[in-house]
Simulated scan of single mutants.
Amino acid sequence: MNKTPAENPMVDAGWLRALQAQASQPPLRPRVPLWAGDSLIGSVEPDFLCQISLQPLSNGHEQLLKEERSGVSGWCLQGEVSAGLNRVAAALQTAGLAGVWRNEQLAVHNERGERLGTVERAAVRPLGITTHAVHLVGQTADGRFWVQQRSLTKANDPGLWDTLMGGMISAADTLQTALVRETWEEAGLELGKLGDVTACGRLSMRRPSEDGMGAGYVVEHIDWYRCTVPQGLRPVNQDGEVEQFCLMDARELLSRMQHNEFTTEAALIQAAVLGLT
């Protein structure tokens, strides 16, 4: 597995190109900016927010205004960011335009990475708000991979294979606390008992989403790590979101990846581990 993709007969070069292309897909339809005050926080389809009803603010001003800035039309959220975005999220849910409601707040940042507020997770894809996630690749001492099959009832990618752990970073978490928490919740493993936990890079995803009745857009940054799972430790799911865990050697892993049995994110991360990208 240490050959380049072009030299490795096990690697379908067309599949690898298609996989890489999945990480950067344009929206299905045009989108316009979503601002909060002077800051860009997301994007929406031009008339998407016309479908929801919001009460005016206490000062009588509308909560969402159509504006034009430097010749670009978009929508601007008025007032306090967290309160305003969560009112929008509730209105989207009422209109049947939100994703699966999680009662989980995610951080909302401006273009400089400064945190401006939080919003219900169900609203981030319809509003094109950038999210952050963390993944952990787990290998045994002999190089085999611990992977999980996502629950068959998951809203996204049910039944597909994934890395040992992958989860969203909530507003209450830092990257490190999310790594610790998600490793326990998804795999029942304590991070401190794993060997050689190493930060390996960041994967950025842009692609259309089915949320918002097909009007959503994913913008996500995934920080991923590798570790060694010591002999005798086996992952055991704690939160009901994993169907099963399995050990795969590199050959089986690559074969299943090329048969599109893995999520796009997991395939891209594990392709990097295998030296394919």
Rank of each mutant, 00 (worst) to 15 (best):
F48G: 12
L49Q: 06
C50F: 08
L54W: 12
N59H: 09
G60N: 08
G60H: 05
E62N: 04
E62L: 13
Q63K: 11
L64I: 12
L65V: 15
L65S: 08
K66M: 09
E68N: 13
L77P: 12
L77G: 02
L77I: 15
G79Y: 10
E80I: 08
V81Q: 06
V81Y: 10
S82E: 14
A83P: 03
N86R: 00
N86E: 14
V88M: 03
A90E: 14
A91E: 11
L92I: 07
L92W: 05
T94D: 10
A98S: 15
G99F: 09
W101A: 13
E104V: 13
Q105I: 01
Q105F: 08
H109Y: 15
H109C: 14
H109M: 07
N110R: 02
N110A: 03
G113M: 02
L116Y: 07
T118F: 13
V119D: 09
A122E: 03
A123V: 04
G128D: 09
I129D: 05
T131W: 01
H132M: 04
A133T: 05
A133I: 01
L136Q: 00
V137L: 15
V137C: 13
G138R: 00
G138P: 08
A141T: 13
D142Q: 09
G143D: 07
G143H: 00
F145Q: 02
V147R: 01
